[in-house]
Amino acid sequence: MPKVVFFLVPKLHLLDLAGPAQVFFTANDLGYQHDLYYVAEAAEIVTAQGVPVKAQLDWPDLGRDDLIVVPGWRSPRLSPSAPISAGTAEVLREHHATGGSVASVCSGADALGAAGLLDGRRYTTHHDLTDELAARYPKATMVRDVLYVMDDRVITSAGIASGIDLALHLVAVRCGVEAAARVARQMVVYARRNGEELQESAMLRHRGHLSDLAHRVQDVIDRQYTCRLPLTELARGAGVSERTLTRIFTTATGLTPLRYQQVLRLERAEHLIGHGATVESAARAVGFEDARMLRRLRARD
């Protein structure tokens, strides 16, 4: 079971911690298991909002499938140095060097920079801190006005609520985009994606609506998009007429059920082709009888 370790610093923002932690906690409830840990350099951390948080002092054993997340702390302006010890910086460096992933929310990027993990990489942070961090870490490339950036297992996010978006992206990468969509729906948040690898997944791009019926039909299509899914069967499963299903689904997602399925197939086929598959083998893998329909869809899109 992969571990997710949150490293806590004094005056951390509650939502920077609670948002991503809730994503992984909800994923656990849905069967996508992670072990959650909370580590700090003191047994108790007082958050920016005044709530004390207990933490363990010892790091668990970490492997390449595990993730360290550094939530942000209250920092209208950055302190002269990141509030982490040399020992913690070494843990971050060593974990990444051995194949693990390291993430930050908001000013947590300062901790990654102090550990040398931003050098030569693209990253982002809260808009109030971009100029300061860009000056502090000139060997790194600041990406402004995005929710999060992923570069060689170093994942940074803009701050506060964007930590939820970052965590949903990581669930999508680790457990699949359907898992991330289910978590977002359970948390009653938009499954937002923005500008980086996998962030434009169709399974999430068309989930930003409040129609429970459309979500339930999308769940079916997401699981079985390589199969033949007649509208009559989808409507029967949803308990509505074909006409009603088409109207509600199209209003919610902007696509008909058939077009939504085609978009999923096309997206997966493009991924396979990008990784060396032929058009013919990609077409078969996503459920087309031959490559003609796939070629037509690629030409149209």
Rank of each mutant, 00 (worst) to 15 (best):
A48V: 02
Q56K: 02
A43R: 13
A43T: 14
Q56H: 02
A48I: 04
V46A: 01
D35R: 12
L36P: 14
Q56I: 01
A42I: 04
A40D: 11
I45S: 09
V51T: 13
D58H: 05
W59G: 09
L36M: 15
V51W: 03
V46P: 00
L62D: 04
A48W: 02
I68C: 03
L57P: 00
Q49G: 13
A43Y: 01
D66N: 11
G63W: 00
V53W: 07
K54C: 03
Y37N: 10
K54F: 04
P52E: 06
A55L: 05
H34G: 01
P60Y: 04
L57M: 02
E41C: 13
Q49Y: 04
V51D: 01
Q49D: 13
D65S: 13
Y38A: 11
A42S: 15
Y32W: 08
I45N: 08
V39T: 13
A40W: 06
A55T: 14
L57Q: 02
Q49W: 01
P52W: 03
L57W: 00
G63S: 14
R64W: 00
K54G: 06
V51A: 10
G50E: 07
G50T: 06
D65N: 14
A55G: 09
Y38T: 14
Y32E: 13
A48N: 13
A48E: 12
D65A: 12
G50R: 06
E41D: 15
T47L: 03
Q49N: 12
L36T: 15
E41R: 13
L36K: 14
V39N: 11
A40C: 11
A42P: 01
D66V: 10
W59L: 05
L62E: 01
V53R: 02
V46G: 00
I68G: 06
D66F: 06
V46Q: 02
D61M: 02
Q56W: 00
E44W: 01
L62M: 09
Y38N: 08
V53H: 03
T47C: 15
Y37R: 13
K54P: 00
P52I: 05
V46N: 03
A55N: 08
D35A: 14
V39E: 09
A40R: 11
P60Q: 07
D61P: 00
L62C: 02
V51H: 01
Y37L: 10
A42M: 06
V53G: 00
E41V: 14
I45M: 06
